[in-house]
Write a protein that binds this DNA or RNA. Structure first.
Lengths: 134, 134
DNA sequence: GTTAATAGTTACCCTAGTTAATTATTTTTC
DNA sequence: GAAAAATAATTAACTAGGGTAACTATTAAC
């Protein structure tokens, strides 16, 4: 399938741009949003967990986490292990998650307009398999 | 389709990383490769054409083009219009294109291993439609 | 109890993008 | 055909976000 990856990459920047414009209103960016989403799903997690999941180096995650703490959206939970920091969403973080979740879902619906559920399912499968192969 | 875009974005960095590692051998990066591909397809083009196609601002394209000229992979063709620069691949540029094309195609095949031509076709359609909607 | 591994941080650098302003040229308009 | 508007490319200055290397503190392993 000639051109598949080229098209994939070409779409990335415009998509990212519209997501970042949406999140800007809440002083967020997509990279910060990723951390919020991860914590929403997992409840609590360490920086290393986040680093591994998104395949981004630890210093980058440190920065994201500090920024989110400054914004009051996440906080550290006390832990017996004093080496690792366990993070979770604050009440405000959960509130912001809900608001952004709705807006992002709406944007996603708009972007996938005209595509059947089946097509989307196939695209999803494609992306999942690719991940394993990379 | 919950998680589709999230997965899409999550894949991007690892994919880009492996492409950049491949291209590094030739002192290239994927952003430079995009210009080469565009010129290969179009034969000749101005900076504005490239800028529009990839939806990247002109100063970024100026830099990419200068870098590729330094590498001797592209060059300016004389034109009646002295305001615009028309660029094309040099002989060396075409040679490097062929080499990288083969390597990238091999990588793409490796990455899409286990996916039917039909699935890939659907994924491609998906990406094309998304582009219109963004 | 010493050594090795792990979590997080700091400092510094790199890639690659953006906006705003500028120059040179071409096109439009009257 | 001269003045005004639009266009192509560039320069300068800035930003987001990531990476590596080196370090500290703590925990796990032998």
């Amino acid at each position: 399938m000639e051109g598949l990856f080229r098209q994939y990459i070409r779409i990335y920047r415009p998509l990212m741009k519209s997501l970042n414009e949406l999140l800007e209103k809440y002083q967020l960016s997509y990279s910060l949003w990723q951390v919020i989403v991860y914590l929403k799903d997992e409840g609590t997690s360490t920086l290393v967990d986040i680093s591994n999941y998104y395949q981004v180096e630890k210093p980058s995650i440190t920065r994201r986490v500090h920024r989110l703490q400054e914004l009051g959206l996440i906080d550290e939970v006390p832990s017996a292990n004093r080496r690792e920091k366990i993070m979770e969403l604050t009440t405000e973080g959960k509130r912001i998650y809900q608001i952004c979740r709705e807006e992002i879902t709406a944007l996603e619906h708009h972007i996938s307009k005209g595509l059947s559920e089946e097509e989307q399912q196939t695209a999803f499968q494609f992306l999942m398999k690719i991940q394993d192969n990379i």
